[in-house]
Write a protein that binds this DNA or RNA. Structure first.
Length: 582
RNA sequence: GCAUCGAUGGUCUAGAGGCAUGACUUAGGCCUUCCAAGCCUAUAGCCCGGGUUCGAUUCCCGGUCGAUGCACCA
């Protein structure tokens, strides 16, 4: 007894170590600048990892740029301070911290205050908080803190722009702000009408206090974000029909509170029942589900969890996380899909002084009666001098009687005789409104997606009585797409194999030629890096111009004509042909 | 960041205050007509800095990285 279950436990808990070990050994990911001792929170993508990551990013582009028509832009990873003042990151991204003098533990000051029964900590200034928590106990060692200093720890990396450090810059903590500050240009690019979207794939930076968990929490990471600008009153997605009947399990706030598992819904139902805020959010939940399956995430390892009211950012109307289950880390937030409302555009409009609105024309111009009061400034100016400007403004909203207008300027009541202004009643046409769009934001953590892909692809099976390590990557993300082997390194088999390799490369397929060692060893090598197909040139090739195509997962082989190889391999990779149908 | 534990070729590993084991991998060769076979040869290692010592990869101190727990994760 026990042997099988024990084995299962070991296998489960070791997947992380095994997959990371393989990833390092075979060139997927490496510790960064390892010869100087590496740095926590940073990784290098090796040759295979960089290729795989690129493929994941390109599948993302297929969905968002090609599928949705949202063009990609590329903004700097450094932005000046003003951007983050407006976005709220400078203030909101900082935690008030303090250090316990006894155990040297760093603690969140507001948490200490909460633990000590101090109220109003979030609104206190550092000095107030310092005084308030002096009598509180350390959350780690339990001793009374005494007099300690509260300081801000900002998760943004700070730098200076130009010599003399006149301007402070920060490494962006998300790519989103670039799309927001470019709003006016984007609006013009999309010819002034809603909805439209812009996307960006790039690095973001957060100076995490204590990064761990390898690829899961990095200080420099890659995000793929889409910002979709929509009319605030029109959150019905024009192509909602595409996903209306798409069914997937949702873990709503209600289910979480009741401790119930996720329940499958169609997107139509979920919106109609008010579980998902609107069609836009639902549409991108479904699109995300479809995309994650495409890169090889298994449906049973994927769930969509709604943010509870207390974890919802103060500006967000609704937010869902796509969570992928990891053997090591449990449910890991991998994608966030939020309705950010008009929070960001409003903030940047106020801080930058640039209006960030869209002019929405009415179907029919509306006729509105309007009264304009036109003062005779040549007289009023001479008479009232410095007060003239204030009087001009006050008259604009005055309600004049027959004898003149009574206005109040700086507390002083002034009577302006009727002959010093003209009242014009006119009918004007209003053609539309200025509207601040709302933003729907799907935000993807590419590194976490890559880790999930690797972890879920890792498998061991028994082949020829020996353990075979195989990365069951879906063909469209596998870094090497096909391997080409001459059975023997002679008798012209090798030259035929090289010609086939070349024909594949010309077709845009990443093909790896290998003639070293026993054929079985070569298959195993490719299995371990997830190469989905292998072509072998044997002696029969010389007789009838056919080769074998081997499937990584089943290890089965079929024989096909050489001239069909490039086309067949292409369609096997893009998924339009299944190996099992050959 | 605190605490505990750990770190030896690419990987796994033996080891002792004084020549650093072995296996796998990799490379070259022989052999080999489809799934890590065999034989020969070669390449490659004691995490970094300081201390103790005639001598430190080994002992001590500090750091880095990793695992775990706590804290942190807008």
């Amino acid at each position: 007894m026990g042997e099988i279950s024990l084995c299962a436990v070991i296998t489960m808990s070791d997947v992380y170590e095994k997959v990371i070990d393989l990833a390092k050994r075979r060139g997927f990911i490496w510790p960064t600048s390892e010869c100087y001792g590496a740095v926590a929170g940073f990784i290098d993508y090796g040759p295979l990892g960089a290729m795989m990551k690129r493929r994941v990013e390109n599948i993302w582009r297929d969905f968002y740029v090609i599928g949705e028509g949202y063009y990609e832009i590329e903004c700097p990873t450094i932005a000046e301070e003003a951007v983050f003042v407006a976005s709220g990151h400078l203030k909101g991204f900082a935690d008030k911290m303090c250090q316990c003098p006894h155990c040297k533990e760093y603690l969140r000051a507001d948490h200490v205050a909460e633990g000590g029964g101090v109220r109003g900590a979030p609104t206190m200034k550092n000095e107030e908080l310092t005084a308030a928590i002096a009598s509180c106990r350390c959350l780690a060692c339990g001793k009374v803190l005494g007099k300690i200093e509260v300081f801000n720890f900002n998760l943004m990396f700070r730098t200076s722009i130009g010599p003399g450090s006149q301007r402070t810059g920060y490494l962006r903590p998300e790519t989103a702000q670039g799309m927001f500050v470019d709003f006016s240009r984007l609006l013009r690019f999309y010819r002034d009408h809603l909805p439209f979207g812009a996307v960006q794939i790039g690095k973001s930076y957060r100076n995490e206090i204590s990064p761990r968990q390898g690829m899961i929490r990095l200080r420099e990471f890659t995000q793929a974000e889409a910002e979709i600008f929509v009319h605030p009153d029109e959150k019905a997605h024009p192509n909602f029909a595409r996903y209306a009947q798409y069914t997937m399990p949702l873990l709503t706030g209600i289910q979480q509170q009741k401790n119930e598992p996720a329940v499958p819904f169609t997107m139509r139902d979920a919106v109609d029942k008010g579980l998902i805020a609107n069609e836009y959010v639902a549409y991108y939940l479904a699109l995300t589900h479809e995309m994650l399956l495409k890169i090889g995430i298994r449906p049973g390892r994927l769930r969509f969890r709604q943010h509870l009211p207390d974890e919802l950012a103060h500006y967000a109307a609704d937010c869902w996380d796509a969570e992928v289950h990891s053997d090591r880390f449990g449910w890991v937030e991998t994608v966030g899909i939020a309705d950010r409302t008009d929070y960001d555009l409003k903030a940047h409009a106020v801080h930058s002084g640039t209006p960030m609105t869209v002019f929405i024309q009415y179907d029919q111009p509306r006729k509105v009666q309007r009264r304009r009061i036109i003062p005779n400034m040549s007289v009023l100016g001479k008479q009232y001098r410095t007060k003239a400007k204030a009087i001009f403004e006050a008259l604009g909203t005055a309600e004049p009687a027959a004898g003149g207008a009574d206005i109040v300027v700086e507390g002083e009541h002034i009577h302006i005789p009727a002959d010093l202004f003209e009242v014009r009643d006119e009918i004007i046409e209003i053609r539309g409104d200025e509207v601040i769009p709302h933003v729907i934001e799907p935000s993807y953590g590419i590194d976490r997606m890559c880790y999930a892909v690797l972890e879920q692809a890792y498998d061991e099976d028994i082949a020829e009585g020996e353990t075979r390590t195989v990365l069951r990557l879906t063909p469209c993300v596998a870094p090497v797409q096909v391997a080409v082997f001459p059975l023997m390194n002679r008798d012209a088999l090798d030259t035929i194999a090289q010609e086939i390799t070349r024909s594949l490369q010309k077709k845009g397929v990443l093909a790896e030629y290998d003639d070293s060692g026993a054929i079985g060893r070569r298959y195993r090598r490719q299995d371990e890096i997830g190469t989905p197909f292998a072509i072998t040139i044997d002696y029969q090739t010389k007789e009838d111009n056919t080769v074998t195509v081997r499937d990584r997962d089943s290890m089965k082989q079929v024989r096909i004509a050489i001239d069909q190889v490039p086309e067949l391999i292409s369609t096997l990779i893009d998924g339009t042909t299944q190996f099992s149908s050959l």
